[in-house]
Amino acid sequence: MSTTLLDPADNLSRLLRCASVTPEDAGALGTLEAMLKPLGFLVERPIFEADGTPAIENLLAIRGQAGPHLCFAGHTDVVPPGPDADWSQPPFAAIVKDGEIYGRGAVDMKGGIACFVAAVARLESKGALPEGRLSFLITGDEEGPAINGTVKLLAHAEQAGHRFDACLLGEPTNPEALGDMIKIGRRGSFSGVVTLNGRQGHVAYPHLADNPMRRLALVLAALQNTPLDGGTERFQPSNLEVTTVDTGNSASNVIPARVAIRFNIRFNDHWTPETLRAEVLRRIETALSGVAPGRDVADLYEMTWREPVSDVFVTAPGPLVEELSDAVEAVTGRRPELSTSGGTSDARYIKNHCPVVEFGLVGKTMHMANERVALSDLETLTAIYETFLTRWFAAQS
């Protein structure tokens, strides 16, 4: 085994030099495979595709034949870096400056992968890697449409007979410092488009047209002005956010035939997708009731629900949460907050197969120019992962 695998900074540098902007792999998964094979992992690189989407390479690596099965999940794809001029260091050069390593994906989330590889390598080098099964489930399609990535990789693993007892997802979860936060769940998410119908016409002859913009303010207020809820025990309040309003009309002397309102909802466990859809429709129909005498409310609007829907979930207390919390506290001296805040992640797919939690680096610079991570944080996260591996497998015996 190469001693460089013991160094998370070296592992990360190798991954950062791969410009794996979704959907390009740019050698990232091959680089990871080269790290895992010397550690005894059997590696598969399945490619998934679907009509209208690019083919995506993925990685499933498994070590061990029997016993408790722990999965580490993540992604090697990254968002575009933007103009090089916005970076003080090249985004794919893995430059170290003032104790930090720069690069797109440093914290989201090649750094987490690099640290978990180093943790496994350190335990292996000491002959202390626990008995059982250990997997890496890594996609190249998390930052993109997420169609040919984790959801299909999980199905592939299940069809091959692999069952995971628990999963750690290495997304950056800490707001300010390592030890701040473990994500034990996520709010749900879905999107929709409500189109207000009217009749096109000349602005000088409004009596011959029907301007849907006159009803726009009523619907916007109905959707947004009254909170959906006040939050629940584990989750912050649900929120509906209008993201764009569009008539498709570029002329100033034409009354538009319709106006489309696009929105996204992040919802907690007070709702299901079905009850939330019903609430949205109730608000729209209440707002439109009586505004157009002689016309059926159903004729005044059309609703389109966008797929996919991400369900709300929370991982119940148990060895996964407790052993990770204990490991974080043992290394950092801080008991992490158990949180369900933030956006969505691939945990929304993994939770259908096994309990899942998320813990990784500090995310302050993710998706920003000059994304970077402190070398000291890489060492600390590696120590946390190493401690967690030992504790989790011990708790299964």
Rank of each mutant, 00 (worst) to 15 (best):
G294C: 10
D229S: 03
T243E: 12
Y301F: 10
A114F: 08
M368D: 15
L208D: 15
R258Q: 15
D98C: 04
I47W: 10
A395Q: 07
F267K: 02
T390C: 07
S339R: 06
L320N: 10
T139G: 05
H156E: 11
D10W: 10
M109A: 13
H202W: 09
A330R: 00
G360R: 02
G111K: 03
L220G: 13
E302Q: 15
T304P: 08
I95S: 05
L240G: 05
D311G: 12
K351C: 15
L228V: 07
F267W: 00
A157D: 04
G231N: 14
S397D: 14
N249D: 12
P54I: 11
L153R: 03
A327N: 03
P145Q: 12
P91S: 07
E241Y: 14
T272C: 05
V245C: 01
S88A: 03
P212D: 01
I284W: 09
A26P: 09
G333F: 01
T275E: 10
A395G: 11
T195A: 08
P336W: 02
T53C: 14
A73G: 12
E100T: 13
Q224F: 03
H156C: 03
W392P: 09
A94N: 08
V242R: 04
P336F: 01
N249Y: 00
I147F: 00
Y205E: 12
F48C: 00
I184N: 03
M35T: 11
G127Y: 04
P83T: 08
E371R: 11
P227L: 00
A119G: 06
D108P: 07
